[in-house]
Amino acid sequence: MNIKDVENLAELAKLDMSGEEKEAMLKDMDSILGYVKQIEEVEVGDVKPSYDVYNVWREDKIEPREFSKEIITEEFPDKQDGFLKVKKIL
């Protein structure tokens, strides 16, 4: 990994970081990846990853919920007429 990779990852993950921090992260990444790399040497054969993982579906039925609209809208960082307000996208 190099500093360009870190910059790219920070952009993808939408994390604003200083140049200094990116340098420090690069060092941490190298050491962590150095540790986790040991899984490369594992012979796993033809094991299927997580064979018992399956989707859990439910009927799309309307059920009454106890959510309070007030508690939810109070959390909005920005709002107008009870609606969530975001910056202009177009």
Binding site: A10, L15, D16, L33
Partner: peptide, 17 residues
């Protein structure tokens, strides 16, 4: 960038990678 601490940022980057 401001809301997450250092370890959270570290793991987000690692996971993205």
């Amino acid at each position: 960038g401001r809301g997450f601490g250092k370890e959270a940022r570290r793991r987000i980057l690692l996971g993205t990678y």
